[in-house]
Amino acid sequence: MSRVFIALQTNDDTRPIIESILADNPHAVPVESPAMIKIDAEGHLTVKRESISELIGRDFDLQELHTHLISLSGHIDESDDEFTLYWDN
């Protein structure tokens, strides 16, 4: 299985996003670098609106990810509730 990743800036806004990604994707591995975090995951990685909303106590719009995103890899499947990265191999 190939690995996908998402890289985010590390700041106050992304702390709950990172936390919920790691909680929702137990197979994901965080790798920290100066000012950024790269989260690697075997096969697929899902960001869930609901989980982030719960952590921040307000409705999170998944498109807010755009503000903090540095990079990613994999195919994208995006709906109102989930943002998934995956490889089919």
Binding site: H66, T67, H68, L69, I70, S71
Partner: peptide
């Protein structure tokens, strides 16, 4: 980093 956040869309 701010540019790269656009790059995610571009990629």
């Amino acid at each position: 980093f701010s540019a790269q956040s656009d790059e995610a869309r571009h990629m």
